[in-house]
Design a protein around this nucleic acid. Structure first.
Lengths: 377, 377
DNA sequence: GACACTTAATTCAACACGTGAACCAATAGG
DNA sequence: CCTATTGGTTCACGTGTTGAATTAAGTGTC
């Protein structure tokens, strides 16, 4: 339908915001004549719209922006209960939110999603696709779940099963990878650079964006730092190994350690105790921070990204845990690199998974912008 | 000069060996008509040649292969003394070898290279470029050395300085990255996949090929596992940190540990002692293997490559060291991933650096196949 | 306020490139 | 010797892109 240069234009505008035709000509390397023709098709197709006119010397330039309403995306988080569905537009703007029941049966999930769609979309048409984030490994085509312990899946064609119920193009992806892509496509870091996003929650996940593209690894296993060995001969992990990052630094692990020590499992309470000088609380948080920091340092040493983003909920990294994490990164990365890397800690809400999932659908749409029949249901 | 499709054809043939025009049409997506025209230019330009005719049913197909002699590359290893220069053709075939004096002055190195060229090339024309491998960080344009402890360089425009003396396009690259690219371009793994190459020698280096391309990292620091922390609170390292892989697993570190224990510094001798049950020798080698294995496991968990190649000299990894390395990798990678990854240990000679360096020049040539004036010096 | 100047965007004839279909070439097998 | 089969070439044609000219829409100046 659209040619590769047009797709490139959509990506450029998605990254940089509205651009004038002349700017597009410069960035794509096409002539102004070509841009004029190609953008006309995109305008006619309803994907772009003239947003603002910028005045300077000479004729004002007209910025062309993505027409958000040209396509909507549904993102579903199968990461935890309740299952959150969100609706976004092409710019990543959140337009709706809906919760549905949990299920670990793919077809049933599909039915629940389908049933939730009317409430979510509130009559909005142009839903271009559905993305589902889940904990586990996903194949390169983003249709089969190779393995998910949480869902009890092993080589399940989950996307196909759901798609059969939903009637819209559906793709699945690993939760952390979806969040990383969400940051690239819908978030603050929309450039062609490289970053790794580490999400700290009940578990720990990581997704890499390399040269602007989601890097999934050869077996969908890139970024599996939760089961990287951080403490050789450490605690046994449910994965069968020992001393995995997950056994020390995840909120679940911290909670478990705290309870064993007769302390409250809540991280905030633990941080409070630590700030009052409670030795055991300090030890638990220090150990978690040291482990997470070491793992992040390994990532930096191995792939040297431009940025590291650590997302956390409930302010989990606002206290000692975060401080030790930062200090440990600093101490275990070569100084000349450490100074160059932008490390951000960021609060996020529970909806981050669903938004990331929506970005999976949006990414597919930007590679093949076809609107489907179900528009006017 | 040549269009992108023609460059793609050169890469395809470099990867897969000689291909017929029909095969090229299939792989590039071009029509047979286009391939016929485009290959003719490449044949006329002297880059391709008809190599063999394959008979089957129907008209035999004529394979087109890279004409090795169409371009020659000089690779120089500034990694250790003596400085080795090699001459290769476009297929990576070694055509010459020459040693020159060591210097850490870039212009002087340039003069030494220039002086060595006649002996190396032995009258062969079409030298398209020079690549130099060195220990340190190199900028993305492969012209400036940002930092090299060994050479005492800090932000030195080394490639430009050398080029001024040599009169041929010259590029520099980190040693391990050059070796990894050499494997991709000249070696056994010429596909578009992903692998990490770990080179174990006096020091330890690592280069990543991701989706068929050298991944350098945002600051040229990808793969710096030598200074990844493997033993927190371990021995101090010259980089200022503690417990770096380099302090435990490099041949230098092993040698140093052995001498401290009053044992021979040679790895072979140490392996011999270990196989006779010498406790201290076993401990040193075991510790090295555990460290290297853990570092490789981290790489696998973080980037999930298709392959890991560990290169070593003097058979350093043939004994206990290698055995422990393998076992440690196995024990610290998620089983479902471990089983999927091809891990190879490979003996290499000292010329591997220079050959890798030549591949840097070859890679540039394949992106812009222009032969330069100096041909007929 | 008329005019020159500047930059954005469009139009249009010219053209380069890739394609499909037909054609020629070279072999194996009957 | 004929046919089937596959590889490779030729050529008229169409599509998509370009450069130059043109139109458009402003600002700054005297």
């Amino acid at each position: 339908m659209f040619n590769p240069v047009q797709l490139q234009m959509l990506r450029l505008i998605s990254e940089a915001g509205p651009l004038s035709r002349t700017e597009l000509a410069g960035r794509t390397g096409m002539s102004k004549a070509a841009v004029s023709l190609l953008t006309r098709e995109l305008l006619d197709g309803g994907l772009l719209a003239e947003t603002e006119t910028v005045r300077g010397t000479g004729r004002p330039s007209i910025r062309l922006g993505l027409l958000g309403s040209s396509a909507h995306f549904v993102g579903v988080s199968l990461v935890e209960a309740p299952v959150v569905m969100v609706l976004t537009d092409l710019n990543g703007k959140l337009l709706g939110r809906h919760e549905i029941d949990w299920s670990n049966d793919a077809s049933e999930v599909g039915r629940l999603i389908a049933a939730g769609l009317p409430a979510l979309t509130a009559g909005r048409a142009n839903v271009a696709g559905v993305g589902v984030a889940l904990s586990g490994y996903v194949d390169p085509s983003q249709t089969r779940c190779l393995k998910s312990t949480l869902l009890g899946w092993q080589d399940v064609p989950a996307a196909s099963l759901m798609e059969a119920e939903i009637g819209l193009p559906t793709a699945i992806e690993n939760d952390a990878k979806a969040v990383a892509l969400g940051e690239r496509l819908f978030g603050a870091i929309r450039d062609k650079g490289s970053f790794s996003l580490i999400s700290v929650g009940d578990g720990i996940g990581c997704g890499h964006i390399i040269n602007g593209r989601l890097y999934r690894g050869s077996h969908g296993g890139a970024g599996e730092i939760a089961h990287a060995t951080i403490e050789p001969d450490g605690l046994p992990c449910r994965c069968g190994k020992r001393g995995c990052l997950d056994t020390v630094a995840s909120l679940m692990a911290i909670q478990s350690s705290a309870r064993t020590a007769g302390l409250p499992g809540d991280v905030k309470a633990l941080e409070q105790l630590a700030s009052n000088g409670h030795g055991e609380a300090i030890a638990i948080l220090h150990r978690a921070g040291a482990a997470l920091g070491l793992a992040i340092a390994q990532i930096i040493q191995i792939i040297d990204p431009e940025r590291i983003i650590v997302t956390h909920r409930h302010g989990a990294l606002d206290g000692l845990y975060g401080t030790v994490t930062r200090a440990t990164i600093e101490a275990n990365v070569l100084p000349r690199i450490a100074g160059e890397i932008d490390i951000q800690f960021r609060h996020v809400s529970a909806d981050i998974w669903a938004r990331g999932a929506a970005s999976i659908a949006a990414d597919k749409f930007l590679s093949n912008p076809v609107l489907h029949q179900k528009d006017v249901v």
